[in-house]
Nucleic acid binder design. Structure first.
Lengths: 148, 148
DNA sequence: ATATAATACTTGTCAAGACAACTATTGCAT
DNA sequence: ATGCAATAGTTGTCTTGACAAGTATTATAT
């Protein structure tokens, strides 16, 4: 691998990701959806999982506990999700979407669809496979190093 | 393009980028380099460009003016860069690395090299070309839409 | 020449992430 | 049964980023 070429490959990822997030945020705003991309990630995870613990929510979205704690608090305050104590283990909180939360998730889905359609224009399934493979490889390279 | 597969491709990029940044930050700390990845990006840009305006620095690092303003202030306070008013246009500031700044850049280079070597283990030049092409395509798709 | 627009940069506010430190609760070893 | 470790979550602090609004300076239109 020619390392001189990969100088700042992180910067390249960073710039692209910023564009993707800005684009999504803008689309949400244009459609009166008061969600950030990160809040959407949390809601999307809950939409798939019904009722889960905050800890699982953190693991599923690859966010740390403090970040999830704060986003959950914000979304509870806005009425999108509910949080209730677990009876068996009082350390835990069970989190789930409210009706309002499910509504905004469904309202946001076509916007996500549009954003993806635009972002992937001119790219094909092989490109997606390649991107996924490369990102997974980088992730596992770093994660495995972390453990050892 | 099968859109169902690309659901949350932004999340995938996000997770990978977080790992890359965390890994780099950890390596900096282990080597007593008191820099964040973002601060490194600024310093790296300055190392290539000698003396530039803050605005150019922002463009080169794809950060917005307020973000650059604050990182620059922080790095000036720590003695890594210097900022002096431009004589011809008093709105502008000329920014450049100090000796201390160049030193830490040189000290950080092998750490960047190590991080890249680890991150790209098992990937080849074609993978890098593919990743670059795909990221550029996504970026241009979004940017061109922005203009229209 | 003067008003207005544009440019360069700063400041304020909120969201999010990294990390350390904290509380409360539960699990486990002996 | 008691002490200690582990777990779930919260809070605090700092950094970064998005975005709006501000100041100061320069360019431009008439």
């Amino acid at each position: 691998m020619d390392l001189s070429k990969t100088k700042r490959f992180g910067v390249h990822l960073d710039v692209t990701l910023k564009l993707i997030k800005q684009d999504l945020l803008k689309r949400f705003r244009q459609n009166n959806i008061d969600l950030t991309p990160e809040q959407w990630t949390i809601i999307s995870e809950l939409a798939d999982q019904e009722t889960i613990y905050q800890r699982e929510l953190a693991a599923g979205t690859f966010k740390d506990a403090p970040t999830v704690s704060r986003i959950v608090e914000l979304l509870v305050n806005r009425g999108y999700i509910s949080r209730k104590a677990d009876k068996l283990d009082r350390r835990k909180f069970l989190v789930s979407l409210t009706k309002k939360g499910r509504d905004i998730y469904e309202k946001s889905s076509p916007i996500l669809y549009d954003a993806r359609t635009l972002g992937w224009k001119g790219l094909n399934n092989q490109d997606y496979k390649d991107l996924t493979r490369i990102l997974n490889k980088i992730s596992s390279n770093i994660s495995n190093d972390e453990i050892s």
